[in-house]
Design a protein around this nucleic acid. Sequence first.
DNA 1: CGTGCGGAAATTGGATCCCGTCTCTGGGAG
DNA 2: CTCCCAGAGACGGGATCCAATTTCCGCACG
Lengths: 220, 220
Amino acid sequence: MKLQPIDISKTASAASIVFEALRKAIIEGELIEGTPLRQDEIARLFNTSRIPVREAISRLEEKGLVTSQRFKGAVVAGLNLDELREIFEYRALVETEVIRRAVPNMDQATLDEAKAYFHGLNTTSDPLAWGDLNRGFHERLYRAAGLPYHEEAIGKAMDRVDRYLRAALVRSGNVAKSNAEHLAIWEACAQGDADLAADLTREHINLSCEGLLLNMTRRG
Amino acid sequence: MKLQPIDISKTASAASIVFEALRKAIIEGELIEGTPLRQDEIARLFNTSRIPVREAISRLEEKGLVTSQRFKGAVVAGLNLDELREIFEYRALVETEVIRRAVPNMDQATLDEAKAYFHGLNTTSDPLAWGDLNRGFHERLYRAAGLPYHEEAIGKAMDRVDRYLRAALVRSGNVAKSNAEHLAIWEACAQGDADLAADLTREHINLSCEGLLLNMTRRG
DNA sequence: CGTGCGGAAATTGGATCCCGTCTCTGGGAG
DNA sequence: CTCCCAGAGACGGGATCCAATTTCCGCACG
């Protein structure tokens, strides 16, 4: 009998459930920037007390997804244009290096699973699903680098810009263009051309940043 | 009457006081890896209840400084050699780029204040003070880049390796060598040579990593 | 003598309650 | 009519209490 070892010890604490739910709602854009997080409202929603909610909120604050003021409560954090730009620059820096290191380590399973994400990206029309698949595609490739701290840092940066990315791509049909870039990145990986994959990734990030900024400035 | 505007709203919550104290104790190496963090004990130390302590601990976990298991409590997190190496690679990547971007923006105040940190580094013999000054020196230079997210990311990475760095440098007298590297970096900044400053910073980080790993493997 | 089991103590997770602060509103003064 | 202020309700921070789980220790049994 084979067992998949899962750390059962940290499952299902109320605080972590609330944390994950709020994080998901924020990065998916369901809770928009500035929305106040009322502790007892959230507690009622999850049939729990305010204690786990407070823990969840302080963890979200540590992640930079909410900002809170003493005695005033927490609100969903937002990013101005400069901050957005900077995080994309950061992503371009780190992700470029990570994919460069990942390419030499890529096996067939990595390429196959990434390809599956890519196919999902081409067939789905749901913006939420598209966002998850987009993230899964890149993360699957990065994993081959075997650099967990880098991956964690990338994930944290993605968490901050994810909702803007999803919102910007669904309209202003850059989806097809973005998917074409994904294919080019995948092919570079499959051919083992690390430098090309890195250049394409940098360009992919820069382009999505430009599209995002354009989209945001057009609408004030 | 001139007032220094400080955001009084988020000062002195019990949770943040406990958080900062624990963070300081961990990155200074006072609480060594594996030490369990007993909520009751900490609460007694700070004359408070366990509630703020729990918030502080979950924030520390989000920062990666402690790991906790449900119903078993939290312990100070540690790093193995691979993780240490990776975080230094990460630092080399990000800090190199940040200092490159910082050099063109450096004004006299930046150079003067960094110089003051440098002088402190040369005169102090206290390992704790040395660690703070070292960090202050680099952070002061980085600040000129105007890249707050990058700085935050660097700080998070530093938090994880700080205690190892301090412990390794105090004996095995690489302090003088490290300070010589600091001087070289400072001079490159003063001359406005961004690429040189970047190269020296990368080398500085690589060297401290090598010294650290040597020090750790020698002692098991 | 080692092993396993059972219960008590220790410790964490969560609920409820209280207190300090903020905010909003309504009424009175200018 | 506007502005200001007092007071009440809303809300967050923290304390205390209860429940659930783990850990430790002693004792019986093989």
